[in-house]
Design a protein around this nucleic acid. Sequence first.
DNA 1: ATTTATGTTATATTATCTGTATAACAAAAG
DNA 2: CTTTTGTTATACAGATAATATAACATAAAT
Lengths: 126, 126
Amino acid sequence: MLIEIDFNSDEAIYVQLQNQIIMGIAMDVIREGDPLPSVRQLAERVGINMHTVNKAYTILKQEGFIRLDRRKGAVIAIDVDKARALMEMKERLRILLAKGSCKNISKEEVHALVDEIYDEYGKGRM
Amino acid sequence: MLIEIDFNSDEAIYVQLQNQIIMGIAMDVIREGDPLPSVRQLAERVGINMHTVNKAYTILKQEGFIRLDRRKGAVIAIDVDKARALMEMKERLRILLAKGSCKNISKEEVHALVDEIYDEYGKGRM
DNA sequence: ATTTATGTTATATTATCTGTATAACAAAAG
DNA sequence: CTTTTGTTATACAGATAATATAACATAAAT
C-alpha cells in the first residue's frame, strides 16, 4: 500500500498516516488480516522517524483498526463497536454540518456528497 | 449567547470558541448582524486571555462567518462562498466517512445522522 | 477636549505537542 | 545466536497554544 506524506501540510504526520491507512481500509486496498509494514520499515520507506509511525499505529490500535503483534507486526483488525462509532461520527458531523448550514448547504446537498463519497469506496462494503 | 470552555478538552480553546459560535449561528441563536462580545469582554467573561479570543475571531473572519469593525466590534456576517464550502466539507467528510465505513456504518445510517442533526438546527434554514 | 472602548500589533514567557535521535529491552522467528 | 518485532525510556529542537503586558489608531460617548 502506497503511503505519501505532505511535509508542508498543517496536519501532523502521524495523523496523515492514520487517515491514509483508514482510507486504505475503506477503499478496500487493504483488508482484514493484511499486514502493515513494521514501524521501522514504514519509517524508513517514508523518510520519517520510527516513533512517528509508532504513534500512528498505537492510536489506530486504540481506536480498533489494527492489532499489534510482537511477532507478526501490525495487522489490519477491525474492532466493530458500532454504537461508539456512531456516537463519535455524530459528534464530528455536528460541527462539520453546522459550518455547511451557515453557508446555505442544504440537507439534500449533504446527502449527495455522502453518496458520492460512498461510491468511491469498494463496492463490497455497502 | 452562552459560551463555555472545557479546559480539560484536548481541543484548543480558540477552536472551541470557533465551534460554539458556528453552532450558535447554525442553531439560529445568533443571526446575521448580531454583535458578538468584544475580545476583552468575552475573554474576561470566560476567564481566558484576550489573544485567545482574538485568534478565534480572526479565523472566523477569514473563514467568512463574522465581520470585525473597529467601532462596532465583532458582528455576525456570513460570506457565502458555497463552492468553497462544499469542497471543504467533502474533504473532511472523506476521512470521517471512511472511519465509519470501516466500522460498518452504512450510507443510509449516515443519511439518518445527517437528518437528525439538521433537525437540531433552526427550522428557518432548510 | 477628554475619556472610554474597539480591533490591532508587538514582544516575551511558559507549557504542551510534534518530530527526531539514540538506546535498550523482551519476545518470537529463522 | 542472530535478526526482527513491538515497546519503553530519555533527550533535544521546533512549532503551537495560551498567557501577560504594553502600546497604537480609530471612533464613540461624555
